[in-house]
Design a protein around this nucleic acid. Structure first.
Lengths: 266, 266
DNA sequence: AATATGGTTTCGCAATGCGAAACGAAAGGG
DNA sequence: CCCTTTCGTTTCGCATTGCGAAACCATATT
């Protein structure tokens, strides 16, 4: 599967009601890890109990949701896990990326992430952390991060058409997450220009205190940036000097390698 | 989230048409890793092009599917990845299991799996393999396996009410996958009795030639078996002797440890 | 340019699914 | 032990929703 740019969702209007409701229901279920009853759910989504129940039982039949028999509460269903993990295997560069991510993790000792742009956010689609079960990053496949305060987000943003970037900034703003977060649009754009020049991006504790990252772009055969690869770790180990001295080169080399494997001619 | 037993889906009848169609569409999309056009898809699902398109555009709006702009082809959408990975984090024993799986992988050098029963199959919900990027198992989170020829499947089957087990066997049969696969119902049931007595199950190249596994049950606070933990590896390393001497004890100890962490009083 | 191909939109009809209300099954309390 | 409450599930008549044939439109092709 090719992952090309982000998907700008057209204007709502002619949406299928059932799909809208299903999306809403699944989102709510996602927020209740202990499960939720029909009554509560119907309250939450603002639909009559009967209607909610009809949708739930059909969703359950196809395994999109699960009803816990003893408690009668509804949960997300394993069909979602199945489809989600299927989706991951369909991303073509992911298979090429895997071994190189592993190697990068072994060499650097830090956590490696593979990220795409989706819904105007940076979406983690793979992660390799060393087995030494020390402190792990809170990141996780399927998780989303803002584009303005992560190294991967900056990479994905830097190679976007200006107008699309403007739309994203307009929608998401540049919320402050740490003292280092860039919250000024002009500054952010200047920064992205630098990223394009350097060919890599740094997150210097702009997303989470004590965490620093470096990322590089992964390109498809057309040269378009389709993903970003990053090295993340505690600021003590991932010092600005370490980044300059070797990490930035390692992540760039690995990203280029992946790009070439999937048809990019550098 | 508690994962309790399997979900027996009630009889179809009053299903919401849209949900049925959505499920079908997503399943088909899952089979086309290169994407599929509206025309092909409408052919495949047996729906008029217009109807297929309407469903797809609503699904795309909510990010359940993605349309690749250059090719216009449709793919699974990242919302599925998001919901699927959210679901995984909601399984309560998974968080307790993780570190123990890691430890088990380090000690044994083999691949560790965490599996639940879903839709009458063994569903992999977590996997820990060593970093040493040698030969990896083809297993993957979200993948399903038969219950009769995997160690984890046998564990999940062994503690099922007889009637439910019969239903599963009736539905799935006991298809032969290797020369060692048990295909006789009576033999299989006798075998499950042994599993209950021993407290662990072995897959002796019954699912895949050259792969042997040992699994043990994970129980909730009520003592009900909710998952299985396994050690898998090439038959050369995972010999029957190695299993007897230490692997079976290690996997049982780890599984019991996880059970106790989530409230089981052994 | 003309044509073919395939994605997208329209629109009038009726099937689909909506939701108020009835029903039923547990759980709690007198 | 029965009565009451609570909450999940089912029913059913109505009208809204979404169905799908056909028109439309945008690319690619000759």
């Amino acid at each position: 599967m090719a992952v090309q740019g982000s998907n700008k969702n057209q204007k709502p209007g002619n949406l299928v009601q059932t799909i809208e409701r299903v999306s809403l229901i699944l989102d709510v279920l996602g927020r209740y890890s202990r499960g939720i009853s029909v009554g509560e759910l119907s309250e939450e989504v603002g639909l009559p109990k009967g209607s909610t129940h009809r949708l739930l039982s059909s969703l359950a039949y196809f395994n999109f949701v699960r009803q816990d028999k003893p408690t009668k509460k509804y949960h997300l269903g394993f069909k979602l896990l199945e489809l989600g993990s299927l989706l991951i295997t369909q991303i073509d560069f992911r298979n090429e990326a895997r071994p190189l991510m592993q190697e990068l993790a072994n060499k650097t000792g830090e956590t490696i992430h593979l990220v795409v742009l989706d819904q105007n956010e940076a979406l983690y689609i793979d992660k390799v952390a060393l087995n030494q079960s020390g402190l792990q990053m809170m990141s996780r496949v399927g998780l989303r991060m803002p584009i303005h305060c992560t190294s991967v987000g900056k990479i994905l943003a830097a190679y976007l058409p200006e107008e699309e970037l403007d739309l994203i900034i307009k929608e998401k703003k540049l919320p402050r997450l740490t003292a280092h977060t860039m919250t000024d649009v002009a500054l952010f754009k200047r920064h992205l220009k630098e990223v394009r020049v350097c060919g890599y991006a740094i997150d210097d504790e702009e997303n989470e205190n004590g965490i620093r990252c470096v990322a590089a772009p992964i390109r498809n055969s057309d040269g378009a940036v389709v993903a970003a690869l990053s090295i993340s770790g505690p600021s003590i180990r991932v010092s600005l000097k370490a980044i300059e001295d070797s990490l930035k080169d390692q992540v760039c080399a690995a990203a280029l390698h992946i790009s070439k494997k999937t048809g990019f001619i550098g």
